[in-house]
Amino acid sequence: METLMVILVGILISIGTYLILSKQLLRIVLGTSIVSHAVNLLLITSGGLKTGSAPLLGEKTAGFTDAIPQALILTAIVINFAVTALVLVLCYRAYQSFGTDDMEQLRGNEHE
């Protein structure tokens, strides 16, 4: 299962990277979202999968699954959400100001 997950993560990273390398602002934001999903999945995979029960002490069981990656991912999801929201508004504003979402045209002045 872990091997399968790591391969999935690799594929997602490839797709995300390809999107990030494209020149449309929207695609770059989509790419970063995919990469962040991939990273979250990699984090939870690194803690070991499907061992024990959910980390709730009420359960009567021998062991719990690793709770630390879960806490880390929870933090990561929220931060990623905040950043995505900001970037989206920024894209929107950039489009409003410059009238394009093409990164090749958003280079700034040549002689700066």
Partner: peptide, 27 residues
């Protein structure tokens, strides 16, 4: 449609491959 660029493809696949190999070795 997203334009096809060979450089981008090579770099993306290399990135995915690197992460996969790292993840598998670390696991």
């Amino acid at each position: 449609r997203i334009p096809f660029k060979l450089t981008n493809l090579i770099i993306s696949i290399a990135m995915g491959l690197t992460v996969t190999l790292l993840g598998l070795s670390a696991n």
